[in-house]
Design a protein around this nucleic acid. Structure first.
Lengths: 86, 86
DNA sequence: TAGATATTTAGACAAATGTCTAAATAATAT
DNA sequence: ATATTATTTAGACATTTGTCTAAATATCTA
């Protein structure tokens, strides 16, 4: 839970998720969308991966990243507890 | 958006929200639930207030805090965008 | 095998964060 | 008025975070 909130607490990482919502992308393609160095993006991707929010798939020299929304279900469930009770 | 994620990115603050889910509490009552100094709790409450997640109401020398779930709707909406699209 | 391309790892550094103690502010009670 | 209670503000400090550059690793191509 902690690690998920941590991963989402950064604009760049949230934007990465929004990109991956539409289609899978390689690390390089993702980095091209930001004015941030590739190592920094790599670090962001690592945090997202640790949180289980993205999945990395190696394909030759490329690494394809895809979003994993099942992890978000846990967060959605956490948030909904506040709406249920009066 | 940013400030909401920031506010939720801390276990103590999330636990405060879970306490307030059941009933309104004063700053002192909230602080009593944690092994953290009152000034630190005060700071956490301030961040939650800035994010709009709680509302403070002064009543004499007490300040009653209550949860405001409408702000969470924005977050829920953000999260649901990932579930909608295929 | 060498060189180019894709990505990560390592290490440094400034800024942000969570915590504390001491002091300030405000309201209540004696 | 003074002391007590509730809460916040101020300032300090160690830890975490986001970023960078330089170097390492891995794959592909000529």
């Amino acid at each position: 839970m902690n690690i998920i909130f941590k991963a989402l607490n950064d604009t760049t990482r949230r934007e990465i998720l929004e990109l991956l919502k539409d289609r899978d992308m390689t690390a390089g393609e993702i980095a091209d969308q930001f004015n941030i160095s590739k190592p920094s993006i790599s670090h962001h991707l690592d945090l997202l991966k640790q949180a289980g929010l993205v999945i990395a798939n190696k394909d030759g020299q490329f690494i394809h990243y895809s979003i994993n929304t099942t992890v978000m279900d846990e967060m959605l469930k956490w948030m909904l507890q506040f709406k249920r009770k009066k």
